[in-house]
């Protein structure tokens, strides 16, 4: 337990951003605490201030708006998992939230915290990416909007500035499409994903892939959408060979981005394998 940090709890976004504009570089926002409290315990937290953002109304709530599906950064994973709106418009996000951490962690952790922490294996990252999500940030110079995949600069390195807060996410809603989120862990709960994947897809009139968004997690420094895989599959009728080739491309791309490492021995075949399982329902339905 560190006794030298100071606790501050703004009650509005204005207060929070105001504090950050003065003290941002020395401040760490506290959302769900499921990552931050671990760094306090280990002594790794270097911040002077811990800013509790849990009582900021502007960070809360899930709503379909003119811009898209808006999810407040301070929304907990459990709230997302139990939201009817999310179930209808972003079921792939819901699925990732249902298997996130543990029940206790889901009750505390927030989607904003998950993205801001920038872990390569953050469970909500791939679903947000396939929803072509925009992260809305607020800082001293006002609002800034970035594609969610640009929220992370590298493993545990956020692109969210020290004087900024993620306020909310705007997802392109996706109703009625095929969706899937899968992850491989060393056990069935409370396991950091070794490999994760999210997909949104739709077939066109002739049964070929008309629309697809695919994102790979836990395999690259930052979860990434792989357009090569999307492009390859678009317009194709899915069969086992086509899907297998898609998986091969995904693995190839992973190695291109991450380089060959000791973990590649497992991850290369696992990415191929998981990709097959990911799209199998689309093959089977034919």
């Amino acid at each position: 337990m560190r006794s030298d940090v100071r606790y501050v709890r703004p009650s509005s976004l204005g207060e929070a951003v105001g504090f950050l504009s003065d003290h941002g570089p020395e401040t760490k926002p506290l959302a769900g605490g499921t990552d931050l409290l671990i760094s306090i315990r280990s002594g790794e937290l270097k911040a002077r201030y811990v800013m509790d953002v849990n009582r900021i109304p502007e960070l809360k709530g899930i709503a379909m708006t003119g811009e898209g599906l808006s999810i407040g950064a301070g929304t907990t994973i459990a709230e997302i998992a139990s939201s009817e709106t999310v179930k209808r418009l972003a079921p792939v996000l819901r699925k990732s939230c249902l298997s996130f951490g543990s029940p206790q962690v889901r009750n505390a952790a927030t989607i904003g915290g998950n993205i801001a922490n920038a872990s390569p294996s953050a469970d909500t990252f791939p679903p947000l990416i396939v929803h072509e999500t925009i992260a809305v940030l607020s800082g001293p110079d006002g609002e800034r909007r970035i594609p969610v995949e640009e929220a992370a600069a590298g493993p545990y390195k956020s692109n969210v500035g020290s004087r900024e807060l993620i306020v909310r996410f705007i997802l392109k809603p996706s109703e009625g499409r095929f969706f899937e989120f899968l992850k491989i862990g060393r056990r069935k709960t409370l396991a950091i994903a070794r490999v994760s994947m999210a997909v949104l897809a739709e077939k066109d009139m002739r049964g070929a892939v008309g629309f697809i968004r695919f994102c790979l997690g836990s395999s690259t420094p930052v979860p990434c959408r792989i357009v090569e895989v999307e492009d390859f599959l678009t317009g194709k009728i899915l069969n086992e060979a086509v899907v297998a080739e898609g998986g091969r491309l995904a693995a190839e791309k992973m190695i291109e981005i991450s380089g060959r490492r000791s973990t590649t021995v497992y991850k290369e075949p696992a990415v191929k394998g998981l990709f097959n399982r990911l799209l199998y329902p689309m093959v089977k339905n034919d």
């Binding site: 606790y7 206790q104 962690v105 505390a108």
Partner: peptide, 24 residues
């Protein structure tokens, strides 16, 4: 937050008390 032995209910929701600041 890996073992749950500290689980308490905060506003009727189960959370790990080790991952929560007292101030919260």
């Amino acid at each position: 937050g890996e073992c749950g032995a500290c689980t308490i209910l905060v506003n009727a929701k189960a959370v790990n008390a080790c991952l929560m600041l007292a101030a919260q």
